[in-house]
Write a protein that binds this DNA or RNA. Structure first.
Ligand code: FES
Ligand code: FES
Lengths: 163, 163
DNA sequence: TACTTAACCTAGTAAAATAGTCAACTAATA
DNA sequence: TATTAGTTGACTATTTTACTAGGTTAAGTA
């Protein structure tokens, strides 16, 4: 079992998306700037998120990504699974055969642990995280810090939209 | 966060130890045979378990390893931590600084997840696992299979002891 | 005393995974 | 038509894992 930056980045990016994509799609460039994640790496992650039907992409200017469902219907477990992180703690992958085609001494322990973690992550949704004060604070700070990079662009877009 | 064969082997070996070391120390050779784990690798893991004061080794003929405490006082969390598996799910290791010296968007989520897993593994002891019927079954099967390898040796020892 | 046993220690290593980079291509918009 | 931004594939440095090989040391046994 492993939970690495791949899964952390995916959840972080999805949360950023949930936070900013109320009106229009959000570009990966913006997410990369706000969350300090490599753009190329994000692209790879979003390819998988798209294949898992969690986000949809819109090409061209004004494009970007937005969520497929409501934030309250997307669990952390789904996101983590979509990018291929194994939440399973067993060696056998649930087959109970890691020791000469038989179960090893600790198979049940790791199965139970995996189920435990899975159900924990399943019960938490993006909406739950959005509701936390701490998340709001951090998102605010990130907006401040990434302002010069992002908002100038977005502001120009907005002016154009108004025109 | 990662939980790999290192931690799985450590717990498996400790459980084997708890099961077989009632009377006399158990050799790593026996554990390796029963659990099909590389002997040299086991030695490395037991070096760490010993440094963590979970087991003590006795050299020479008739030697081996035995537990430092009762099986009911050794939690899975201790074993996993002793061999250096990081149960922590954060990137920052709890420092809340993984994004330019500040907390990232999902820091709290990973902290909570880590605490959750940790407390789950802390509440399970070796004695709990030993009490499970499934574990007894598997241990019995392993005894059968490793009989020709181990018990012939132990039998010889026993005969010598009697003499 | 010589021999065996098994813990203890150190260094190295093939394979896999991670966390990326780079470059090209496609679709939508202005 | 130029620009934007998603989409795709290949490639890479670094790290970790799960070992192996080879030794040394301490404690019993013949
Ligand atoms: S982990 Fe499932 S059989 Fe060993
Ligand atoms: S995981 Fe702790 S700050 Fe990002």
């Amino acid at each position: 079992m492993r939970l690495t930056s791949k899964g952390r980045y995916a959840v972080t990016a999805m949360l950023d998306l949930a936070f900013h994509s109320q009106l229009k799609p959000v570009t990966l460039i913006d997410i990369a700037a706000r969350q300090t994640i490599s753009l190329s790496y994000l692209e790879q992650l979003f390819a998988r998120l798209r294949r898992a039907n969690l986000v949809k992409g819109v090409r061209g200017p004004g494009g970007g990504y937005s969520l497929c469902s409501n934030a309250c219907d997307i669990s952390i477990a789904e996101i983590v699974a979509a990018v291929g992180e194994r939440i399973d703690a067993t060696k056998c992958g649930g087959e109970a055969n890691c020791q000469k085609h038989h179960a090893c001494l600790t198979h049940d322990l790791w199965m139970d642990l995996g189920d435990h973690i899975k159900s924990y992550l399943q019960q938490i949704t993006l909406a739950d995280l959005l509701a936390k004060g701490r998340v709001q604070e951090v998102a605010e700070r990130q907006n401040q810090e990434a302002r010069q990079v992002i908002e100038i662009r977005n502001h120009a877009d907005l002016m154009n939209d108004i025109k």
